[in-house]
Structures are given as structure tokens and as C-alpha cells.
Nucleic acid binder design. Structure first.
Length: 761
RNA sequence: GCCCAGGUGGCGAAAUUGGUAGACGCAAGGGACUUAAAAUCCCUCGGAGCUAAAACUCCAUGCCGGUUCGAUUCCGGCCCUGGGCACCA
């Protein structure tokens, strides 16, 4: 009877049993309702951190809850195994990226298993393995054949000392993180995916994603940034050339006092060939990171080209400037400067003493019609979204399956030659990339670049449905499981990853690999785990290692604490003391289930049952809205209630309690279910139902407010009328002083809840 | 700079989204048990005022204003913190 709670022993015993029985392996079953629950796959950085623990605990709670509701639940796990940190580790510790990555995966997999997550490990995906990335290469070639892929020059951060391309993250205050050298923007040829071809559909379909947080939909909408405007042509007065600008505010055209072009604008480049001061200015603009944030906070700088254009309506001449705040990537890379109504233009005009011309309110549609008629403008829909550059000048990634032939140009690797394997040596000599052109047979070179790792994470959710399939990227099983019913991951992925995955889903649909429009029906964006108000990170030295906690308290306690501490979407402040509290609750539960203490003065059975089912009803509501922290509050309330109830309530209560806690703390609940002789296997039982008859009562408490302030309460019959309530209030001695000598102006009744008397003098 | 969130006791939070502000837990203080400690159990616990004590009164959900019988919740303006900004994942 006095068996102590020993979490480690019992948890490992249950985990072994689940693994041996392959309890969480699933197959397609059309008779049963499916539920695909997916957590964002981790990057194998070394150890699990608390953010992972939180993400995967939330996913496991949802999966186990859905299983108890009778669904066929798929919950897979895998590894986003390509990426920059493996290369950094290789440089630092002289370990090959592959070795480092696979060792990390082995360690982290053990940690996941020790937390008791109900994954179907038979579907594990590791993105750096050729059986995964070969299908990515195959898919890229399909897109190439469909014309959805192209190559063009694009700008990267160049470290002139280390002679390497830098990620934005590796540029600190405009300098290379290792060399400290001033970075330079450099143009190199790169591959692009035509995501802009899907811009309209990606925007429209946001309306169908009703299971997504509104804020994520808004962020994506703004990111795609559809705007209706016009292209306006400004003729150069000294030549036949013209400069075209894009604007959504054609109605401000009277206020144009200058034209500004980006330093990368072809016009600027051309003029600079013959003008050293322009060239110097353009070169100076290159010493900045390509990150938009870095460019947006730059001090505004510009240079007059000396060129003039003609205003299409007033025919006055206007100067053309090169300005560092004009982005080449948006619109035409040239803007009309309207300092009167545009803040950035005004700032620029004030620095360089350009005129600020007032303009009146003109009807936008009328002025567009006029400009179109005069043939100086045409309507244009512009997106902020740019095509996706997928080339990376890095070793540890999926090789781009393209061969560059001097005669035939870019030629895709034939399907039969896939996969193009990544060389095992990080410093592979150029000789290795020599090959022959599949088209003409002459000697040619393979692409050395690899893919952006966002490509791997854009379709892994689909690959889980077709494990071990080595004849196709996906098979018929994909349509059984997809779309994902519940996706869980950090809010930091609100735009990039989630937009790319939506894009890939539509591409796979158009290649007839799947037959749905969107990948993720419901999305939960989990908040970060913080300590002392800051994100837990190695650089801040404020990490808490899950392993130490699991060793000390057991997996159930860690899971319970992380669920209880905050609602899933909020940031979670780490607290060591809070973990003690969670552990204490499980010990109390353990002791209670083993003793069923006799209560000398139990509360009445009717009252106890009513409370029990009221709490259960709230818990049910909270599970559905995924506010799991208050599920735990409810569970604690139930245990508190059972500690002052009689035996029958205790038995019914424990049976409910173990089932509602099982998704959160599965090991202890499975154990106590057996120990309490409630049944054989808790996972084969059904979800507890609220007994509505227990909730019924004939009387009801009403809050009494006088002029909106709470002054007391009365008890009246359920659904009592206004008259009855008013009489009861006037008869209540405690409320007399608020009523005496005052006139009742109005009475407001919220049924079965509240009465507000509006009194005057 | 632009886009999106968040701000409630000493702390994490709750308030079924316009109707009792602070459920549940942590920390703290007091007590019981113990030779002692740990563990466990019981009590108190937003602030101020008034009380012998209770009752009671006022203030309080980042700041300022508005709508309403009634605002943590809705509207307008500010401040602070966090996430993203296309090569971190």
C-alpha cells in the first residue's frame, strides 16, 4: 500500500512496453477517422532544449487526446539535418558535418524517447539522407521542366577577407563575423523558384485557413503584399530614354519634385560608367548587409545624376537622383519623390534641399484614367513577395541536380542518375564536379551550390505519409493522411517556413502527387521558453537542460510543469520552484490513488458530483480550445475536491482524473489506472463524459450590482424573472443601504448570472 | 524603419471574450507533527483606510482619453517588451 512514487523506474517500464508493442505505429484505415498531428521537426543542434520539450509535449498532448477520442492518430518525428551549424562545428572541432549531425540525432532521439512521446518512429525522416533528398532533386527537375525554375543574378553578402558568402546572421554591424571585414554586396548567378506565380492563390487561400491564428494570416497577407497601382513613364529630356516608376499614389503626381532610383538600377549603373562620383557613391552603397532591416535604418543618402526628366502633366523638368533608400527588388527600382505626402521622400528632400510641392486631393481613379489615356501610365498589380532564391554556396546541403555545359547551358541531371550524392569530404577538389553533359556528351561541370534548407522543411510533412517508398516521392497513402490536422511550432516560423510549405503543397498538387490545396488545417503557434525575461540560448548562458530535470523528477513532472506554466501560445517563464510544485501534485495523486483516504465529514454527494462534473465540463472546453494550462488547474481542483469527498465520489473522480490527465502525464496515469483496478488498459477506454443531470439545480446565485458596482448576491430560482429578482433584492437586509431613498431608473438582468440596478437620487 | 503580438498581486497565470478581477499553482509568513531537519498536513496572503475582531469603504488589470448601466475585454492616442524582415532554423 505504501509503494513510493518512483517515476524513473515506472516511466522506463511503460516506455519499453509501448516500444515493444509498437503501440503508436499506425496504418491507413478508411473505417476510422484519421488525425494527423505534426510538430515542427528539430534541427539536430546537439541537445534537446526546453523549446523543443514544450513544442513536443503540446503535440503529444493533442495526439493522445485525439487517440482517446477514438481517432486513428499519426504523430511522426524527423530531423531537419542540413544547415549552417554543422559546417561551423566542422570548422571549430574538425568533425565532418555528417558525423556531427548523426551523433546529435542519436542523442536527441534518446531524449525524445525518455519523454514518452507517442511517435510512429517507423516513419522517421532524416533530410540529409539520400533517400530523402533524391526526391527533392527529382522534384526540382520536374519544376525545371514545367518552367517554374530560372537562373538569374542576385546579390549576396561577400566577405572580402575570408573570400566567402555570408549569411545575414553572419554579418554583424556590416562586418563579417570572423574576419571583421566590411562586407560587400556581390552579384552571382543563382536559381529561383517562381513563388510569385502562386502569389494570388497563396493570398486568396489564406481566407480558407480558419484554423490558423489571425495574426499569422495577417503577417502572410502583408508579406505577400498585393497592391494595385500604376507604372508611370518619365521621359528623359536629353535623350530618348525614360524611367518607369511604380506607385499606388498616382493621385499625388502634382507633388513630384524628384525621381529616385536604386543604386542597382540599370540606369544608375549605365550613368556610372562615365561618371566617377556616381560610381563612388554606388560602391559606397555596397558596404551594407543585404538584410532588409539593415537597409531600412540607413541614414538616407543620395547623389544627383544631373539628368532631368519631364513631368507627364505639367511638362516641368524634374531631377533624377540615385538614393540608397530605394529597393531594387520592389516595383521597378525607381520611385517618384513626393515629399509633401511621403515621409521618406520628405526626409530625403529636406537633407538635399529639394522642393516640397503641395498637391491637392485628386480622385485616384480619375487621374489613373487620364494618365492611361495619355499613354504615360499603365495599371499594374504589384506584389511585395519576391521569387525564392534557393541557391546556397555551402557544402552541407542537397546538391542542386544541374549540369552546366558550355554548349547546351543548364541541363538537368537525368532521372536515372539520381540522387546526385553529396561528396563526403567538405573540401572536395573541383575535379570531383567534372562530368559529361547529358545532352551533348562533352565535358561539363556539376553545380557546386546546394539548396536552401527551407526546401527540405517544405515537404517533409508529406513524406511522413509514404515512408520507405523508393519508387516515388509520395504514394497513395499521402491522400489518406493529408492535410495535416494539427501543426504545432514556434511563432518565428509564421511567414517564411509556413509560406514556403504552402507553396510546395500547391506545387505537389499541380504535379498530381496529392489532391488538396493547403497542407495544415489547424495551426498552433507556441510561445518561446524564457528565463529571466530573455529567450533561453547558449550565448546568454541561461539554458536549463531537460536531461537534468528528467533525471531528478521524471518525464511526467517535466511535461506537467511545461503544460501548466502558461497557455501554449504565450511565452513561458522558466521556474525551478514551479517544477517542484508539479512534482508535488503527482506525489499527492499517487498517494491518493493508493490510499483512498477516509473523510470524516465529506461534503454531500450531490454537491460533490455537481462540482466534479462542472470542472469536467470546463476541462472538456479547455481541451477543445487547446488551453491546456487550465486543464491542469481543473485536474488539481478535482484532486482537492476528492480529498474532501466520500468513497463513491472518490472512485468516480479518480477514474475521470486519470483519463483527463493521461495525455499530459501518460506514465503515471497508465500505472495508477492498473493499480486502482479501474481497468486493464487506460488507452483502450473512452473519454469521460459530463453527466448533465449532475449539473442541474433549481436555485441559482445572482450577483447584485448597484450602478455597475458589485454590492452583494442573492439566491433565487433558476431563470427567475426581473420582478422576482427585484423583490428579492429589495427584501435583502444587506442591500438596503444602497437602495433606501433612491429611485430605481433601470434594471438590467443577465440571465442566471447578474442583476444591475441603476439608481438615481 | 516596416509588419505582427504581448503588458493583470512578490512570481506563473485565470476570468468560457462586455457582467463577482486575481480561479489553480509558486514563493513568503504563522502553526501542527519531529530530539532536529526534510517530507507531509492546517491557516494567512493585491494595496490603503477603519476596527478589539469582524463587517465595511476606497484604490487597483502599462499610461492618457472615449463609448457603456457596467470595460482586463470595445474605440482613439502614447510608452515599454518580444517575434519576423527573404542566406539562423
Amino acid at each position: 500500500m505504501d509503494k513510493p512514487y518512483q517515476p524513473e523506474q515506472l516511466e522506463i517500464q511503460w516506455q519499453t512496453q509501448w516500444e515493444n508493442k509498437k503501440r503508436y505505429r499506425v496504418t491507413e484505415n478508411v473505417q476510422q477517422k484519421k488525425f494527423y498531428c505534426l510538430s515542427m521537426l528539430p534541427y539536430p543542434s546537439g541537445h534537446l532544449h526546453m523549446g523543443h520539450v514544450r513544442n513536443y509535449t503540446i503535440g503529444d498532448v493533442i495526439s493522445r487526446y485525439q487517440r482517446l477520442l477514438g481517432k486513428n492518430v499519426l504523430q511522426p518525428m524527423g530531423w531537419d539535418a542540413f544547415g549552417l551549424p554543422a559546417e561551423n562545428a566542422a570548422l571549430q572541432h574538425k568533425i565532418p558535418p555528417a558525423k556531427w549531425t548523426h551523433e546529435n540525432i542519436a542523442y536527441m532521439k534518446d531524449q525524445l524517447k525518455r519523454l514518452g512521446f507517442s511517435y510512429d518512429w517507423d516513419r522517421e525522416v532524416t533530410t540529409c539522407n539520400p533517400d530523402y533528398y533524391r526526391w527533392e532533386q527529382w522534384f526540382f527537375i520536374k519544376l525545371f521542366e514545367k518552367g517554374l525554375v530560372y537562373k538569374k543574378n542576385a546579390i549576396v553578402n561577400w566577405d572580402p577577407v575570408d573570400k566567402t558568402v555570408l549569411a545575414n546572421e553572419q554579418v554583424i554591424d556590416g562586418k563579417g563575423w570572423r574576419s571583421g571585414a566590411l562586407v560587400e554586396q556581390r552579384e552571382i548567378p543563382q536559381w529561383f523558384l517562381k513563388i510569385t506565380h502562386y502569389a494570388d492563390e497563396l493570398l486568396q487561400d489564406l481566407n480558407t485557413l480558419t484554423g490558423w491564428p489571425e495574426q499569422v494570416r495577417t503577417m502572410q497577407k502583408n508579406w505577400i503584399g498585393k497592391s494595385e497601382g500604376v507604372l508611370i513613364k518619365f521621359k528623359v529630356n536629353s535623350s530618348r530614354d525614360s524611367i518607369t516608376v511604380f506607385t499606388t499614389r498616382a493621385d499625388t503626381i502634382d507633388g513630384v519634385s524628384f525621381i529616385a532610383v536604386s543604386p542597382q538600377h540599370p540606369f544608375a549603373q549605365k550613368l556610372a560608367l562615365k561618371n566617377k562620383s556616381l560610381q563612388d557613391f554606388i560602391d559606397q552603397c555596397k558596404n551594407v548587409s543585404t538584410a532588409e532591416a539593415a537597409q531600412a535604418v540607413l541614414e538616407k543618402k543620395g547623389i544627383d545624376t544631373g539628368l532631368q526628366v519631364i513631368h507627364p502633366l505639367t511638362k516641368k523638368t524634374i531631377p533624377v537622383w540615385i538614393a540608397n533608400y530605394v529597393l531594387m527588388d520592389y516595383g521597378t527600382g525607381a520611385v517618384m519623390g513626393v515629399p509633401f505626402s511621403d515621409e521618406r521622400d520628405r526626409e530625403f528632400a529636406e537633407i538635399y534641399h529639394l522642393p516640397i510641392l503641395e498637391h491637392g486631393e485628386i480622385d485616384l481613379q480619375k487621374i489613373i484614367a487620364l494618365l492611361v489615356k495619355k499613354r504615360v501610365a499603365e495599371r499594374k498589380t504589384q506584389f511585395r513577395l519576391r521569387d525564392w532564391g534557393v541557391s546556397r554556396q555551402r557544402y552541407w546541403g542537397t546538391p542542386i541536380p544541374i549540369i552546366n555545359c558550355k554548349k547546351c547551358g543548364t541541363v538537368p541531371v537525368p532521372e536515372k542518375d539520381l540522387p546526385v550524392l553529396l561528396p563526403s569530404d567538405m573540401n572536395t577538389p573541383d575535379e570531383f564536379y567534372k562530368t559529361s553533359c547529358p545532352s551533348c556528351g562533352k565535358s561539363a561541370m556539376r553545380e557546386k551550390d546546394t539548396f536552401d534548407t527551407f526546401i527540405e522543411s517544405s515537404w517533409y510533412y508529406a513524406r511522413y505519409t509514404s515512408p520507405h517508398q523508393d519508387h516515388a516521392m509520395l504514394d497513395g497513402r499521402a491522400d489518406y493522411w493529408l492535410p495535416v490536422d494539427q501543426y504545432i511550432g514556434g511563432i518565428e516560423h509564421a511567414v517564411l517556413h509556413l509560406l514556403y510549405a504552402r507553396f510546395f503543397h500547391k506545387l505537389m498538387r499541380d504535379l498530381k502527387l496529392i489532391h488538396s490545396d493547403e497542407p495544415f488545417t489547424n495551426l498552433l503557434t507556441q510561445g518561446m521558453v524564457l528565463k529571466d525575461g530573455a529567450k533561453m540560448s547558449k550565448s546568454l548562458g541561461n539554458t536549463v537542460d531537460p536531461k537534468t530535470l528528467i533525471d531528478k523528477y521524471g518525464a511526467d513532472t517535466v511535461r506537467l510543469f511545461i503544460i501548466f506554466a502558461a497557455p501554449p501560445e504565450l511565452g513561458l517563464e522558466w521556474s525551478d520552484a514551479g517544477v517542484d510544485g508539479a512534482s508535488r501534485f503527482l506525489k499527492r495523486l499517487w498517494t491518493f490513488a493508493h490510499t483512498f483516504p477516509t473523510i470524516t465529514k465529506p461534503i454531500s454527494a450531490d454537491k460533490a458530483r455537481q462540482q466534479l462534473h462542472e470542472i469536467l465540463s470546463q476541462i472538456q472546453f479547455d481541451y477543445e480550445r487547446k488551453q491546456f494550462n487550465t486543464v491542469v488547474s481543473g485536474a488539481m481542483k478535482i484532486l482537492n475536491l476528492l480529498a474532501e469527498s466520500d468513497k463513491t465520489i472518490q472512485i468516480e473522480g479518480l477514474s475521470i482524473l486519470l483519463r483527463i490527465l493521461f495525455p499530459i502525464t501518460p506514465h503515471i496515469c497508465a500505472e495508477l489506472w492498473q493499480a486502482s483496478k479501474l481497468g486493464d488498459d487506460i488507452e483502450k477506454t473512452s473519454w469521460p463524459l459530463v453527466d448533465k443531470s449532475a449539473l442541474e439545480s433549481t436555485t441559482q446565485q445572482f450577483i447584485v450590482q448597484i450602478n455597475g458596482k458589485m454590492r452583494g448576491s442573492i439566491v433565487a430560482v433558476k431563470d427567475a424573472s426581473e420582478d422576482v429578482l427585484q423583490k428579492a433584492i429589495y427584501a435583502d437586509p444587506n442591500l438596503q443601504k444602497f437602495i433606501d431613498g433612491k429611485q430605481l431608473r433601470k434594471i438590467i438582468v443577465v440571465p442566471n448570472k447578474l442583476v444591475n440596478l441603476v439608481m438615481g437620487e
